[in-house]
């Protein structure tokens, strides 16, 4: 778990007499995950990686993915941090219902998220129809739709991580700030947010990584138009049958990014920020 820092302080305990069947099961589980990842590294045509990455589909998707995932991570913070604070501090009835609904996208099939976004913001959608009628704004199958799909799927990761950080920080400092004359907005920005800084940073990185990998909701709500809405995972999927080598190289890129993010969260940010 990312919040667990116990790996920093090795505890010497009596050697457990190994149950060999358990060790074997653990080995099988680890191999089940590691072997496919390693196979991508093994099979990827590293010599041609550069020419593949600079091909037009890859290059366009890299730009779209880089841009949309960063914007989605920022939007997730802007919207998700206040939600996390409210969830951490409220005593309102029904808060747990709100929490459950808001983090549902974590367990929902992403394609269902895409359908939900279409139902709300599609051209015939609950909000989409009036948007188009009154303002001439159409959202589906645009770059904005890519970002919305990513925020829908990624923000819950940030909300959970940041809510935990607010809870851990407690409300003592916020109370102290209030006795010094700080209103709710100042308390939030100048006391609550800084005291949950590590959790917010971790949540933002998680949300970014999840946005970068988003596929199901995005392809349903935004389609896969090269140079407009086609992201890296879509190119990986579509080239799996047409150009397997390209698929492998882009997959390797996404694996490297994901593993790097996990390593950073574990070793640097969580450990480095903890007080």
């Amino acid at each position: 778990m990312i919040s667990d820092s116990s790996h920093r302080e090795p505890v010497v305990s009596a050697p457990v007499r190994s149950a060999r069947s358990l060790t074997a099961a653990a080995a099988v589980a680890a191999m089940f995950v590691v072997v496919p990842l390693a196979s991508v590294v093994w099979r990827a045509p590293l010599g041609d990686a550069w020419s593949i990455l600079s091909g037009s589909a890859s290059r366009d998707a890299l730009v779209v993915s880089a841009q949309t995932s960063v914007i989605a991570a920022i939007l997730s913070c802007v919207l998700g941090v206040p939600l996390a604070w409210w969830l951490a501090r409220t005593t309102a009835r029904g808060a747990s219902v709100v929490r459950t609904l808001c983090i549902a996208p974590m367990v929902l099939p992403p394609v269902v998220g895409g359908i939900a976004l279409l139902a709300a913001f599609g051209r015939r959608g609950v909000l989409g129809a009036p948007l188009e009628e009154w303002f001439g704004v159409t959202i589906p199958f645009t770059r904005a739709a890519v970002v919305m799909a990513q925020v829908f799927v990624a923000m819950p990761f940030l909300v959970l991580s940041v809510e935990a950080a607010f809870r851990q920080a407690g409300s003592d400092l916020e109370e102290a700030a209030r006795t010094l004359g700080a209103g709710p907005v100042r308390v939030f920005w100048q006391v609550a947010v800084p005291s949950a800084g590590a959790g917010i940073a971790a949540g933002a990185v998680l949300a970014w990584a999840r946005s970068l990998g988003e596929f199901g909701a995005t392809i349903t709500f935004a389609g896969s138009l090269q140079g407009r809405t086609q992201t890296l995972p879509m190119v990986v999927y579509e080239s799996a049958a047409l150009d397997y080598r390209q698929s492998l190289v882009l997959s390797l890129l996404l694996i490297v990014v994901s593993v790097t993010v996990l390593a950073l969260l574990r070793d640097r940010w969580i450990g480095g920020f903890s007080r």
């Binding site: 003592d172 400092l173 102290a176 006795t179 010094l180 004359g181 700080a182």
Partner: peptide
């Protein structure tokens, strides 16, 4: 609290 003008020195200080 923020409008009372009541200063508090808390037992655990609670410095930011």
């Amino acid at each position: 609290a923020e409008l009372r003008g009541v200063g508090v020195v808390f037992q655990t200080m609670r410095l930011f």
